[in-house]
Design a protein around this nucleic acid. Structure first.
Lengths: 205, 205
DNA sequence: AACTATAATTGAACATCGTTCAAAAAAGCC
DNA sequence: GGCTTTTTTGAACGATGTTCAATTATAGTT
């Protein structure tokens, strides 16, 4: 057919993103198809390919929005300056987000960006912003000049927590009697902090 | 066409598994399709559905084999009874396995078994067997009657390590300057052990 | 106002996927 | 040899992501 002046490029982009989000949240990741998004916004599949190179890019932008939502949720908690309290608070909010938007979270971490193409900078920046909250909580434990070590520990903690949430989500933690992921994650935080305080040289660098 | 007496049911099963393994290892997970497996063993796609309910089941059995391979690799290392040494040794062998069979490892952890249907018992037992190696390494740190806590810590450690390997595999750990996953995982083990020793009550239960 | 050039939109088409199932044929049995 | 049983097939179905010639509304020009 032809050009329609119903919406601008940006409007269609936003509509597509909103539709993708709604589809994932309500019907799960598998329901997110080029055709389903196109149908939801009243355009044809081909139109999407004027705005996105492919479905991967739609998911990438969706995950970007999810990271923003997550950050917004995590940043409201007051920073009290006590690592254990701050981290457990972060953990609580993180798990709450995970419960509120399980499907969005799944796409965020399960979706594999093709290895050959590099992630765009703006995406890594959104990740770094969330990571920064963990770093801030850990700051009191490190001398000022140890930013590198601080960043490393933050990433270790982040990855470790992700592992617990990920395996719990897949139902793989309940091999033989299970404890809630919440408890395990809390234990992990406490253990790591205890380890940090007890043996500061455990992370040499 | 018709029945061929070329192979028994079991033989076809084994051939299919071997083919699936070869395909995943050489061409990656995406190349594992019903048609590719069928073609590799010289049968038609339909034949596979006499042996497996669906592709999920093929992947499940493939993962079972991978767990066996992993266990065989991890179990050969001598158990010396010093948790840090034993765990770091396990970690080393685990990472070596991961480097040798990256695609098999990806399928093992990325593949989502449908949530509605329960995993078969034999599969969980294979997982528990690997987990048992971590438990054994941790044993000296816990009094005899604390098996539950031992099991919990082992699962925490396992999940945390998985998180690091998983994010590293996806290239998501290198947000801002990166360290090798190997180093981060080693740090995690040391930190957790230090935390365990320093604060045994950190995991109340 | 008419005409042209530009750009957006379409939807059929292609190759692929998992899965099904009526038909076909080989093996076992009497 | 004929009959039954069981295995195997491959075409068929409904999906998927992606492409692209064709179509048509808009913008610009005369």
């Amino acid at each position: 057919m032809a050009r329609r002046s119903d919406h601008t490029r940006e409007q269609i982009f936003d509509m597509a993103m909103a539709a993708a989000e709604r589809i994932v949240e309500t019907e799960g990741y598998r329901a997110l198809t080029a055709r389903s998004v196109a149908h939801a916004i009243g355009y044809s599949p081909g139109t999407l390919y004027n705005l996105f190179a492919n479905l991967d890019e739609i998911v990438l932008h969706l995950n970007g929005r999810t990271l923003d939502r997550l950050y917004d949720r995590l940043v409201v908690a007051p920073y009290v300056g006590r690592p254990e309290a701050d981290l457990l608070r972060l953990l609580d909010d993180y798990l709450a987000f995970l419960e509120d938007h399980p499907h969005l979270w799944q796409v965020l971490f399960d979706y594999k960006w093709p290895k050959d193409r590099p992630r765009p900078l703006w995406y890594d920046q959104k990740v770094a912003r969330v990571l920064g909250l963990i770093e801030r909580s850990l700051t009191p434990l490190f001398p000022r000049q140890d930013e590198h070590r601080l960043a490393d520990v933050a990433r270790i903690l982040w990855a470790a927590l992700h592992g617990i949430c990920s395996l719990a989500d897949m139902g793989r933690l309940d091999v033989v009697s299970a404890r809630p992921a919440r408890d395990m994650a809390g234990d992990l935080v406490r253990l790591l902090l205890a380890g940090l305080v007890a043996e500061p040289a455990a992370v040499p660098r």
